[in-house]
Design a protein around this nucleic acid. Structure first.
Lengths: 110, 110
DNA sequence: CTTATCCTCAACCATATGGTTGAGGATAAG
DNA sequence: CTTATCCTCAACCATATGGTTGAGGATAAG
């Protein structure tokens, strides 16, 4: 499932859709409006988001109303958080070097 | 740049590579070993990770040694964190409904 | 020197992705 | 009823993706 989520996030148009959906429900046409592509193309992007579980669609009459479904994003963050220790560790090492009164760069061999 | 990072993460073989690199440096051949694909295919995956800035390669002799470069993952988390408020908010709403002594479902019109 | 090892490159292939246009179903508006 | 609007579908196209094999350069090992 992570494959689908990360793939859904790997396109600017889809990230724009998600950002706008964070502000509230929007129809497919409204999601498509600011994008430089046809309605049919935007419709495909909505389907990608839907299949990744990031958007839920409710059909009311001829409008397809989309709502953000943030849980898979939380799963993605959970996956990425594993690496947090790693970049923290790197920062700690850098901090250690900066705090050191005698940086190894200026040390002479005995 | 987020496009490249999310795209790099959207394939299981590449996520496996990253996970293993979290344990230390590995050559391209070592990264390829557990994957069910040719060395050439694995080599392409390494390049995708490299182009996303997630892996740094050092060529020593005939070995290409790869090291994890976690910063772009941090950027991805930063992007995703915007939505954290959103899934927190949803949980709050759910909690509110559950805590409510008179759920709206059982309310009658005046 | 000769041979084995590590890895990339090039060519190829099947399928996925991301876009287009034209048609049309279903609903809303007049 | 008639027409406009919202949206999907189908067909099409160019390019990207993800894999293969065969060749070969560079280095290491014998």
């Amino acid at each position: 499932m992570l494959d689908a989520v990360f793939h859904a996030l790997a396109h600017d148009a889809r990230r724009t859709m998600l950002r706008r959906l964070a502000g509230g429900e929007l129809s497919v046409g409204e999601l498509a409006a600011p994008l430089h592509m046809s309605l049919a193309a935007a419709s495909k992007h909505v389907r990608v988001l839907e299949q990744a579980g990031l958007v839920q669609r409710t059909i009311t009459g001829r409008r397809h109303v989309c709502r953000l479904r943030p849980r898979p994003l939380s799963d993605a963050v959970a996956w990425l958080r594993f690496y947090e220790q790693f970049w923290d560790a790197r920062l700690d090492v850098l901090q250690h070097v900066l705090d050191s009164p005698h940086p190894s760069v200026s040390e002479e061999p005995p």
